[in-house]
C-alpha cells in the first residue's frame, strides 16, 4: 500500500508576519520558513503506517519554488521513501494545487493520500477536499485517528460538537488535525541518509493544468490593533471595572 503525502513550505509558525509597506502582500523576505505543521503530522502518520506494516511506501510531494526542496529533504529524513518536487514560481490557488496533485496521483497510484487540514499561511482549508472531489474519492477531514484495515480506512474526525468516525473505502483522502499524532524529529544520520534518497523534479507548467489565477489578491492590510489595556491590582478592582466601566457583567 502506497501513501502519498503533499507537504507545503510555509512561514514558521512562531514568526509573526508583517504586511509590506505598499500593502501588496505580506513580507516574506528573510523570514524563517518551515514545513506546514499539519503536513508534519501527515508525514508522521504515513511513516507510522509504514512502521506498523500497513503501508509499504511513502512518497512526499510539494508544489512550489526551488527552496521547497528543503522541506522535501526534511520529509525524506523523517522517513519518506522518495519525493517529488513540482516546481513553479506562481502563486497558486488551492484548486490549482489539487489539480496538480490529481496528476501526481494518476502517475503514482497511491491508495491513501494524507494532507494537512490547512496551511497556516493562506489558512484555506481546501486542498484535500478538492482533491477528493476531483478523484471522486471519499474524504476523512480533520482526522484525530486513522485506522486502516483491509480496503477500508476508519477516520475519527474533530468536528464542532465532538468527534465523528466515518468508514471510507480506499482509495481515500485524509486530512490531519492537531491531535492525530506528535511528529518526531529527524535524527542526524537520517538527515544524512535523506540526501541520497530519490527526489524527482517536474515543471508545473508541463503538467497540463491551467494555472491562470482564479482569485486575485487585491491588497493586504494590518489587522486593527487592540489598545493596550490596564493591569488591575486585585479581583475586586477587576469585577468593579467589568461592572461599571466595561459594563459586560451585571
Amino acid at each position: 500500500m502506497k501513501v502519498l503525502v503533499p507537504i507545503k513550505r510555509v512561514i514558521d509558525y512562531n514568526v509573526k508576519v508583517r504586511v509590506k509597506a505598499d500593502k501588496s502582500d505580506v513580507d516574506l523576505a528573510n523570514v524563517k520558513m518551515a514545513m506546514n505543521p499539519f503536513c508534519e503530522i501527515a508525514i508522521e502518520e504515513a511513516i507510522r503506517l509504514k512502521e506498523a506494516g500497513k503501508a509499504t511506501e511513502v512518497v512526499a510531494v510539494t508544489i512550489g519554488d526551488k527552496s521547497a526542496q528543503e522541506q522535501l529533504r526534511t520529509a525524506l529524513a523523517l522517513g519518506a521513501d522518495s519525493a517529488i518536487h513540482i516546481e513553479t514560481e506562481d502563486k497558486l490557488d488551492s484548486l490549482h494545487v489539487a489539480k496538480l496533485l490529481d496528476k501526481v496521483i494518476d502517475e503514482q497510484q497511491p491508495d491513501l493520500v494524507i494532507l494537512g487540514k490547512q496551511s497556516i499561511d493562506a489558512d484555506n482549508n481546501q486542498t484535500g477536499q478538492m482533491l477528493a472531489a476531483l478523484r471522486g474519492w471519499p474524504q476523512g477531514t480533520f482526522a484525530s485517528k486513522v485506522e486502516l484495515n483491509d480496503g477500508k480506512v476508519n477516520v475519527t474526525r474533530e468536528v464542532d460538537g465532538g468527534l465523528q468516525t466515518v468508514a471510507l473505502t480506499l482509495p481515500a483522502i485524509v486530512t490531519t488535525d492537531l491531535r492525530l499524532n506528535e511528529p518526531r524529529y529527524a535524527s542526524l544520520p537520517n538527515i544524512m541518509k535523506a540526501k541520497r534518497k530519490p527526489l524527482d523534479v517536474k515543471n508545473a507548467a508541463d503538467m497540463g493544468v491551467d494555472l491562470t489565477p482564479r482569485v486575485q489578491l487585491v491588497s493586504v492590510e494590518e489587522p486593527s490593533q487592540r489598545q493596550g489595556g490596564v493591569i488591575v491590582e486585585d479581583v475586586a478592582t477587576l469585577v468593579s471595572k467589568l461592572k461599571n466601566e466595561a459594563k459586560v457583567v451585571s
Binding site: I11, K16, V17, R18, V19, V26, D93, S94, L95, I120, D121, A122, D123, N124, N125, Q126, M130, R214, V215, Q216, L217, V218, S219, V220, E221, E222, P223
Partner: peptide, 29 residues
Amino acid sequence: AQVSDIIDVIDAETFKRPIYAGNAIATVK
C-alpha cells in the same frame, strides 16, 4: 476556486479574509 472564511463583503466579487492566523487581512477578488 473557493474563498474561505470571509469577514467582510466589499462587493459581489470582493471579500476580506484573514490570512497568517489573522496577522494580515487580505482583500481578494
